[in-house]
């Protein structure tokens, strides 16, 4: 299925859960903020969170800024 990751198309296995996806991408969920279809997903609920076709995922974090 197709999802949008940080504004770019990605094709992944249907029915994948968020925790698996984040792991696959090599991120530590402790260090990033996961925004799924404009909603923040808490770290605790990542495991049971099934992704659907055409969903949007933004992975963001705080960095230095003025």
């Amino acid at each position: 299925m197709k999802i949008m990751l940080n504004g770019k198309e990605e094709f992944i296995e249907a029915g994948m859960t968020l925790d698996v996806f984040i792991n696959l991408k090599g991120y530590n969920p402790e260090h990033i903020i996961i925004v799924y279809n404009s909603e923040i997903v808490s770290r605790e609920s990542l495991a049971g969170f099934k992704m659907k076709d055409n969903d949007k995922i933004d992975l963001v974090k705080f960095v230095g800024g003025g």
């Binding site: 991120y27 990033i32 963001v60 974090k61 960095v63 800024g65």
Partner: peptide, 18 residues
Amino acid sequence: VTIALRRVDPAYEEENIA
């Protein structure tokens, strides 16, 4: 203290500024 919010860059892992 100001900080910024960015999409993560898969190329390298930055530390969390906070």
